[in-house]
Design a protein around this nucleic acid. Structure first.
Length: 900
DNA sequence: GCGGACTGCTTACCT
DNA sequence: ACAGGTAAGCAGTCCGCG
């Protein structure tokens, strides 16, 4: 598995100048000199300042320019496909807030003489925690680093340190507070200027102004008429959200790149921080149809005989330095650059490698941070980070991939896989390497190109909703998106953004007991299922239950346990908490309006057949983005990492959820409807009449002020006695499988195949009578698998592999050693590197330790009985509901079973 | 010394 | 770093058993 090859057989040694010279003499050509001269000539002006007048451009990013001490906006002009930098001309400066008076602060020399300090201002803001206006001092600085962000010596640390040293202060040191000092400067800039990232702007006489798009405005006016029951205030919010979604998206001029690095040991990925080995190849796949491979010419490498696509331009470079300069040209050129793991590998490697080769810093188009690698010119989107995002994975791409590798995401999302290659980079011919590397950038590009650039549009919509630069929104999680639009709202309403610990002090306590050990509060209800086969099952649910609750019950950190005595009677059911009756909470408005917009507008639009496909696709994007955010909007309040963390808000939401579903359960009983099952926000009803459904919906609307409707109808559904486990066949014959082992992604294909065959059988059944044939077919399927196992008749060992994700690095498993960890350890011993996040594929064997990685296992050591037991338990979940028994199917008599 | 009852750990799933 | 609830399988521990 491990291959080694002597480096200097064919490579320049960059660290040893002597050998480098030797190499140069052999390979330097006239051609290279020419390239170098052209580089000089073509050097583009940097930064690319926006002209005094610039036509419609998209606000794609914002940063801070340390040299000019100004915020910079990156504008994407789609006609030319260029980025322009617009430098702030409003004079906006970094600041933070404190409850110390100007008088007290002036006595602090370390503040007033701080090199970044500018001046003090007095401002009045609304403090939602105490429900009153407060006067605070704004400490304005010349440099964001003066406020915070340095390891030490920032104003946010100095102030509490200095307070005890000044005399005549009525305040105790621990009461000194600083607010809003941890907000990134460019975010602060975005909120205060009210510029909306992702929206369309123009520069007029040097000023940046948002552009009004007539068509979009018309659509918004139209859409508002739907929301009859909304208050004026709610309508305003709905309009704001709709504007962010209705405005058009540009075509994104972009290039996907991928580099290959020579590694002496092919199983080990080279360390990007050392960049000890040469970059040998880079591929590019761009939206302007450029398809290129930049290849380093090396001694002893054959051209090979792979046929490359005719429109692929393969270009050789004589030295690595030239190759890297060639790659840099691309990075200076494209407004959007896509990579898969470019943050931690490709771009980071290039920076260090270029530095090792003596390329000057200003020539390098990349800025590396601790966790990210950004471009000086354009916007770098690392699709690994984007697809890694759990919310994106589940809600936007409905779990179509699970291993966040280029191969798995490519396969799941666009059906394109990596080129299979079992050799090291150093052993490939030029054409083999080119083909391999090119495919990677092809997948990367196409991940953003299917369905009308869906991924790019999704990032754009999220950029708008969250008011974040595209780089940030594509890398950070949903809680950051939510935090940011809530911060934006605070600034717009002149509200003080509270410190997390102050929310916790005032409203930190929870009162319910979780079912699961170690959790903070009680969650949702799951109704005990009625085992068996049931025909005509209606599934009713609340669309976006938790966001509805947050809206209807006015939940938010300011409204829960509010300071008004009059509100204390307004109790949340099954909790001691009360909620404000006087003022609408900001979260309730923001989340409520977003929910209404999705449920009442975008959900239908995404399916509207009267629209063009292009329009529908756009609404699909919008609908999906809203779904991702709404689904997380309750959970964030229970997440410590969230800036507005407020456990009782999360607890109250879940409690009202339990209350609501319990109420409907009671009503269904009154109406004489049999409830077969229910989970959190859904109810499965056995053969209800139209009138019964209408009554239930109407009653819920009246009593709970929330909508409930029929989500789907099952021709029939199969329940075992297990919660979160069922199978339902829809009218059109498609099958929903929930939670059953046969669906889980870790089980061997050999078993999963049988399960899927059973699924197909069940899909055919239309009436109770047809069950008999299906039962026979299913028995045959099970019997067939059983005999095949007994006779060891499988095609390939990989069919028997369990594939389990290694959740953590190996050494972190100290408490127990699960089977996949045992397999991983044995992989490591055979020289294959294993890390947290890797998928471990193993088979069960008869001898200790009863597991083996598939690669190392042979047919005869397979523990067949274990597999039969697994087959048994997998099918039992469905069989007992059908009145079948696994043992009887495989022909064991009762006596045999007893003896076994 | 061994096996069953139990708890805890880990993963994958549901809403 | 969105939450809690459920299922399943295995690892490890405790305890009884002449």
């Amino acid at each position: 598995m491990t291959q080694t090859k002597s480096l200097d057989a064919w490579l320049p040694q960059p660290k040893k100048s002597e050998e480098k010279e030797k190499y140069k003499v052999e390979t330097q050509t006239h051609h290279n000199e020419q390239i170098r001269k052209e580089h000089k000539k073509e050097q583009r002006p940097f930064p690319p300042k926006a002209p005094g007048n610039l036509s419609q451009s998209y606000f794609v990013s914002a940063t801070y320019d340390g040299r000019q001490k100004k915020a910079v906006v990156k504008l994407y002009e789609p006609k030319e496909g260029k980025i322009y930098f617009w430098y702030d001309n409003t004079g906006h400066k970094p600041y933070c807030l404190t409850n110390l008076s100007q008088f007290e602060l002036e006595k602090m020399e370390r503040v007033t003489t701080h090199e970044g300090f500018d001046h003090f201002e007095q401002v009045e803001l609304f403090d939602a925690l105490s429900d009153r206006k407060v006067t605070v001092t704004k400490i304005v600085a010349n440099d964001p680093l003066a406020i915070g962000g340095k390891p030490q010596g920032s104003l946010r640390e100095i102030i509490p340190e200095e307070l005890p040293k000044i005399s005549d202060t009525p305040m105790a040191a621990e009461d000194a507070k600083v607010w809003e000092a941890k907000i990134k400067y460019y975010q602060s800039y975005i909120y205060d200027t009210r510029y909306l990232p992702g929206m369309i702007f123009e520069v007029k006489n040097g000023n940046l102004a948002q552009v009004c798009i007539e068509d979009a405005e018309k659509a918004i006016t139209n859409l508002k008429s739907i929301f009859q029951g909304a208050t004026t205030e709610e309508l305003e919010y709905i309009e704001e959200w709709a504007r962010l979604i209705e405005y058009p998206a540009p075509k994104f001029r972009r290039a996907a790149i991928d580099i290959e690095v020579y590694a002496p040991i092919s199983s080990r990925v080279p360390d990007p921080r050392e960049a000890a080995y040469p970059v040998v190849c880079c591929s590019l796949y761009a939206s302007d149809n450029k398809k290129r491979v930049l290849m380093l010419r090396r001694q002893g490498v054959k051209v090979g005989n792979k046929t490359l696509p005719t429109d692929l331009e393969l270009q050789y470079y004589e030295t690595e330095e030239d190759l890297i300069r060639g790659i840099f040209e691309i990075l200076w050129e494209y407004p959007f650059v896509l990579t898969f793991n470019g943050d931690d590998f490709d771009l980071r490697y290039l920076v260090h490698r270029a530095t090792n080769l003596g390329i000057e810093k200003r020539e390098i188009p990349i800025e590396i941070g601790r966790r990210v690698s950004l471009l000086k010119y354009g916007v770098h989107i690392d699709l690994y980070k984007f697809f890694f995002n759990r919310a994106i994975q589940i809600y936007a791409f409905s779990n179509r991939y699970r291993d966040v590798t280029l191969n798995d995401v490519g396969k799941g999302v666009i059906g394109l896989e990596k080129i299979v290659c079992d050799k090291g980079i150093g052993d490939l011919s030029y054409t083999e390497l080119a083909e391999y590397c090119f495919r990677d950038s092809e997948i990367t590009f196409k991940l953003t190109n299917f369905e009308d650039e869906l991924s790019m549009k999704l990032i754009l919509v999220l950029t708008r909703i969250s008011s974040m630069p595209m780089e940030d929104v594509s890398r950070q999680g949903v809680s950051r998106w939510i935090r940011n639009f809530m911060h934006r709202e605070h600034r717009h309403k002149k509200m003080l953004i509270p410190n997390s610990q102050d929310i916790l002090i005032h409203k930190g306590q929870t009162a319910t007991k979780a079912v699961i050990k170690g959790k903070k509060y009680q969650g949702a209800i799951v109704v005990e299922p009625v085992p068996g086969v049931h025909f005509n099952v209606a599934v009713m649910d609340f669309p976006s239950l938790y966001p509805s609750i947050i809206k209807v019950w006015n939940l938010g950190y300011q409204s829960i346990l509010c300071p008004h005595a009059e509100c204390k009677g307004n109790i949340i059911p099954n909790t001691p908490h009360w909620v404000c009756t006087k003022k609408r909470a900001m979260e309730s408005l923001l989340i409520g309006s977003l929910r209404d917009l999705r449920v009442q507008w975008y959900k239908n639009k995404a399916k509207d057949k009267t629209l063009t496909e292009e329009q529908r696709n756009w609404y699909k994007v919008a609908q999906g983005a809203l779904k991702v955010i709404l689904n997380a909007s309750y959970g964030v309040f229970g997440a410590e990492s969230f800036d507005l963390y407020c456990p009782p808000v999360a607890e109250a939401t879940a409690a009202i959820g339990r209350f609501s579903i319990t109420k409907i359960l009671e009503r269904a009983k009154t109406l004489g409807i049999q409830v077969l099952y229910g989970d959190t926000d859904s109810l499965f009803l056995k053969n209800p009449s139209k009138a019964q459904i209408e009554d239930l919906a109407h009653w819920t609307e009246q009593e709970l002020k929330m909508g409930i409707d029929v989500d789907k109808m099952y021709r029939y559904a199969v329940f075992s006695s297990r919660k979160k486990n069922y199978l339902g066949v829809l009218e059109d014959g498609s099958v929903d499988v929930k939670g059953l082992t046969g669906k889980k992604k870790h089980i061997p294909i050999f078993i999963k195949d049988a399960f899927n065959q059973m699924k197909d059988c069940l899909a055919q059944v239309k009436t109770p009578a047809e069950f008999e044939k299906a039962k026979k077919d299913i028995a045959n399927i099970v019997r067939d698998r059983y005999t095949k196992l007994k006779r060891r008749e499988w095609e390939d060992m990989s069919e028997l592999a369990f594939s389990v994700v290694l959740g953590d690095d190996l050494e972190r498993y100290t408490k127990t050693t699960p089977q996949h960890v045992k397999a991983a350890k044995s992989l490591q011993q055979s020289g294959i590197e294993v890390r947290g996040g890797d998928l471990i594929r193993f088979v069960k064997t008869t001898r200790e330790p009863h597991v083996k990685p598939v690669e190392l296992a042979t047919k005869n050591e397979v523990d067949v009985d274990k597999y039969i037991a697994y087959l048994h338990s997998t099918f039992d979940q469905v069989l007992d509901a059908l009145g079948l028994s696994f043992d009887e199917i495989i022909g064991l008599t009762k006596l045999e079973r007893f003896l076994a």
